[in-house]
């Protein structure tokens, strides 16, 4: 048997990545948040796949996360499927919007599928606010169509969906941390497991001019401590052994 040193280094095809590194075979779309890009495979949001974003409350953080990406894609209209509120164009620094307002969850899924299959438009943003709106096999169906797509696709789903399996190659959980920061945890990516939360600076661009240093320092008295640790990153407590 040859010793391990004699085995020639294996040249892997570009689609195969090592489990301790990120899959960089497919370039991503830079998200505009440097900390996040460093942790995403391909250096940004996935193209040719679903980007699933899990939120505690729909309609609180989406634009702050996505505006850096979307403001660069102004030439084609963005498709907003079932947004939680009325989009207010004067406050958004993005291109033209199309607001698609399905009347039932089935229609929302159908419209999302059609939008993904069409492959036109600047981006597809779909909100599926209830856990029961989309079953895992329906997400898989969307993902199958997304494989051939050349536009970024974002699905916004509730936090409870984290417990379900999903075919989306990239899943990111978001929460707010004070008024000017959002925290992101990557639940699933083509690469090693992500631990802890990434604190991203995200001041709404419309408020930049308005804020003074004193306003930036404002905190709710009962606000969460700034440093969080993901449960998995915590050192395991020694289990008392009973004799």
């Amino acid at each position: 048997m040859p010793s391990p040193a004699l085995i020639p280094p294996v040249v892997l095809p570009p689609e195969v990545y090592r489990a301790d590194g990120l899959d960089s075979s497919r370039p991503g779309l830079p998200s505009g948040h440097g900390l996040l890009d460093a942790q995403l495979p391909g250096g940004g949001w996935a193209l040719g796949g679903l980007n699933e974003i899990l939120l505690e409350q729909p309609g609180a953080l989406e634009w702050r996360l996505l505006t850096p990406l979307l403001s660069g894609r102004r030439d084609k209209p963005l498709l907003l499927i079932q947004p939680p509120h009325r989009p207010h164009l004067p406050g958004l620094s993005v291109g033209p919007l199309l607001w698609i307002k399905p009347t039932s969850p089935q229609q929302a899924l159908w419209a999302t599928e059609q939008a993904i299959r069409s492959g036109d438009g600047g981006a597809v943003l779909a909100w599926l606010p209830e856990l029961r709106d989309a079953r895992p096999e329906q997400i898989r169906r969307l993902q199958t169509h997304a494989l051939a797509s050349h536009v970024p696709i974002f699905l916004f789903r509730p936090k409870a969906a984290a417990a379900q399996s999903s075919a989306a190659p990239l899943r990111v959980q978001l929460r707010s941390c004070g008024p000017w920061q959002i925290e992101a945890h990557i639940l699933k990516r083509r690469g090693p497991m992500h631990e802890g939360w990434l604190a991203l600076d995200a001041t709404p661009p419309q408020l930049e001019a308005l804020l003074t240093p004193r306003m930036r320092a404002a905190r709710l008295p009962s606000s969460r401590p700034v440093h969080h640790h993901h449960a998995l990153a915590r050192p395991a407590a020694p289990v008392p052994v009973e004799h």
């Binding site: 193209l47 084609k76 209209p77 989009p87 164009l89 033209p96 919007l97 199309l98 607001w99 698609i100 307002k101 399905p102 009347t103 229609q107 159908w110 419209a111 059609q114 939008a115 299959r117 069409s118 492959g119 036109d120 438009g121 051939a148 050349h150």
Partner: peptide
């Protein structure tokens, strides 16, 4: 951008507005 869309956006929106009703697909 890498690829041609499989179907023009107007065709997609037309289909959506026929199936869901004309008021459900909006522009601002």
């Amino acid at each position: 951008a890498g690829g041609k869309p499989k179907e023009a956006l107007s065709l997609l929106l037309e289909r959506l507005s026929v199936r869901m009703g004309p008021e459900q697909v909006r522009y601002s």
